[in-house]
Simulated assay, not measured.
Amino acid sequence: MIMLKKTSRTFYIPINRLKEGLKEAVAAAYLCMRAIDEIEDHETLADDVKVELLNGIHVAFESKDVVTESQRLLFPYRDILPDVTMRIHEWALLCPPTVTDVVYLNTSKMAKQMAEWVHVSWNIRTEEDLDGYTYSVAGMVGEMLSEIWFWFDGTKSDQEKAVAFGRGLQAVNILRNRKEDLERGVDFFPDGWGTKEMIKYTRRNLKLADSYIVDLKGGPALDFCKIPLTLAHATVNLIAAGGNKLTRDAVMKLVGSIN
């Protein structure tokens, strides 16, 4: 939970509130995916090294010994990669045994798809390309969470809406990080798109995400999803009004207002 708090103020709060068992599963899933995300977004690693490492994580999480394989892979980069990435084997071990297949499979799949996007230099020209990217790095997380909800207490949810939940949150990040992404030479906006078009895309997915959480009908899954979705709506509204990032006080006020 200390690492989780360091890496995401948005997700620390709802994960920390989850029940025992579910908390470990979602925390493990989040940290594994944050670990590979740090490879994809690393500022100094060469793209060919990123591809090698992400494909290596893909293989490690499909192997019989995630710990040994991931440590062997990452050790040469221990002075370059952040702690959350170097400790990915710890997050893997944190996961409850009865749900490891779900978390490991999705981590492996996401790492492979991230490697493919790095390989093509995040070449996003059309909305279809954007859908593909946002699925690879976030829509897949929505699918995985739906599987975890079902594993924990039998909660069923719509997979298409689950993808939109993840995709909408990622689109908010793309809007918020626009300046930094362009500075590092990456443009996630399709050709001809400006902020107006990306906001429209984001809100369309967040609307589906609203429908997704309505379908959850209570329980820990709903309690978890409400917080990042509320913050996502508030952030996109702020960006539409010319702002960029919610203050810590604004975040805490919004969280406190959620029933």
Results as ranks from 00 to 15, higher is better:
Glu62Phe: 00
Glu62Ser: 10
Ser63His: 06
Ser63Glu: 05
Asp65Lys: 05
Val67Asp: 12
Thr68Arg: 14
Ser70Glu: 06
Ser70Pro: 07
Gln71Arg: 13
Arg72Glu: 10
Leu74Gly: 01
Phe75Ala: 13
Pro76Gln: 06
Pro76Val: 02
Pro76His: 06
Pro76Arg: 03
Arg78Ser: 08
Leu81Gln: 05
Pro82Leu: 06
Pro82Thr: 07
Pro82Val: 03
Val84Ile: 13
Val84Ser: 11
Val84Thr: 13
Thr85Trp: 09
Thr85Pro: 03
Thr85Met: 07
Thr85Arg: 10
Arg87Met: 07
Ile88Asn: 01
His89Gly: 01
His89Val: 01
His89Cys: 13
His89Lys: 05
Glu90Ile: 02
Glu90Gln: 12
Trp91Pro: 02
Ala92Val: 02
Leu94Ile: 06
Leu94Ser: 04
Cys95Ile: 02
Pro97Asp: 14
Pro97Lys: 14
Pro97Phe: 08
Pro97Cys: 00
Val99Ile: 13
Val99Met: 02
Thr100Val: 09
Asp101Glu: 12
Asp101Ile: 03
Val102Ser: 01
Tyr104Arg: 10
Tyr104Ala: 12
Leu105Tyr: 13
Asn106Leu: 08
Asn106Ala: 11
Ser108Tyr: 03
Ser108Met: 09
Lys109Phe: 10
Met110His: 01
Lys112Gln: 13
Gln113Gly: 00
Gln113Asn: 12
Gln113Leu: 14
Ala115Gln: 09
Ala115Leu: 05
Glu116Asp: 15
Glu116Gln: 14
Val118Ala: 12
Val118Lys: 08
His119Trp: 04
Val120Thr: 15
Ser121Ile: 00
Trp122Asp: 08
Trp122Gln: 13
Asn123Ser: 14
Ile124Trp: 06
Arg125Trp: 00
Thr126Ala: 09
Thr126Asp: 09
Glu127His: 06
Glu127Phe: 05
Glu128Gln: 14
Leu130Glu: 10
Leu130Ser: 09
Leu130Pro: 05
Gly132Trp: 10
Tyr133Leu: 14
Tyr135Ile: 10
Ser136Gly: 07
Val137Phe: 03
Val137Leu: 07
Val137Arg: 01
Gly139Lys: 12
Gly139Tyr: 11
Val141Trp: 05
Val141Ile: 14
Gly142Glu: 10
Gly142Asn: 10
Gly142Tyr: 08
Glu143His: 11
Met144Arg: 05
Leu145Thr: 07
Leu145Ser: 11
Leu145Met: 15
Leu145His: 04
Glu147Ser: 14
Phe150Lys: 13
Phe150Gln: 13
Phe152Ala: 14
Phe152Lys: 10
